[in-house]
Write a protein that binds this DNA or RNA. Structure first.
Lengths: 152, 152
DNA sequence: CGTTCGGTGGGGAAAAGTGGGGAATGTTGG
DNA sequence: CCAACATTCCCCACTTTTCCCCACCGAACG
């Protein structure tokens, strides 16, 4: 199973390609077959989620559990899958970001890549700064409230 | 299982390397494979947490249990993993602190290393002084409230 | 007084990141 | 149905950074 962590500031070339950082490559499960499914993230700030194929398959199961006769479920599924695309690493361990997602995120020249457990996130650096600045609660508080009850 | 205690004031060389104090090295479990995962601590004051690999694996399990479709969980995971990196001891039992964490903590020349049960903390000495000075409650009081209910 | 253990510093080899050109593929318009 | 175009993919080469190894110094201990 994959577990991604760490972050890197990488360049995006004129063809829309970005390398997958070596440390994340090492944490990529062989079952993923060097393939990712990319789509938009769940935040208001536009970012890209890249799931390795093995994790995506699990995620697919949760999607199947939704009821598309519910209007909100339908909206969720449509928006998520509208942006979804399958990409494969080339011999230099790069993926090329689909044009739609490049436009959506405004990524250009430079991308911030963050490992987040079961997926990798790709941000336009300025957007990520805005995201952090928009947080109203300090990390110290959130950490305590999210993790503080373990063992209690 | 590892259990760290004690503290040392060590030098950080131009390449950002710092030795793991010998006494902590002795408490490092063989399962850790001389490898640590470093990331930022949960405090407002910037410090570095270094988990030996075996302890980190346990911590990973708690992270996987979070639901990243919850906004606060996502913020926590991102911030924590943004700074995370895997480092291995060299033949001189040193780790090199990732550049991002050096900048984040402002560490330069000297670092305070503290053993804290399942992880090792690395502080800029001045920051740790500020931390201590910022405490509003006395150690005596906190000791009583944290430990005073045992067996009650 | 010699030896060992612990801390500090620098240089060279290997791996990782970046960029560009050419072939194959798919798509659009005539 | 064919041709021209655009796009994607793949390979090769360069540059930079990281990592690993070797050497030194000092203190503690026998």
């Amino acid at each position: 199973m994959s577990f991604f962590k760490g972050s890197e500031l990488y360049s995006v070339d004129a063809k829309g390609r970005v390398s997958l950082p070596a440390k994340m490559r090492k944490n990529l499960a062989p079952e993923a077959n060097d393939t990712f499914v990319v789509t938009r993230g769940p935040d208001d700030e536009p970012c890209i989620y890249a799931y390795p194929l093995d994790e995506w398959r699990k995620f697919e199961e949760s999607l199947k559990a939704l009821n598309q006769f519910q209007e909100r479920d339908r909206f969720f599924v449509r928006t998520l899958l509208l942006w979804a695309d399958e990409v494969t690493l080339d011999n230099q361990a790069r993926i090329s970001i689909p044009k739609g997602l490049v436009d959506f995120t405004g990524i250009d020249k430079t991308a911030l890549i963050i490992g987040a457990i079961d997926h990798v996130e790709i941000w336009k650096p300025e957007t990520f700064d805005n995201y952090l600045n928009g947080r109203t609660e300090s990390y110290a508080n959130v950490a305590q409230s999210v993790m503080g009850l373990r063992g209690a």
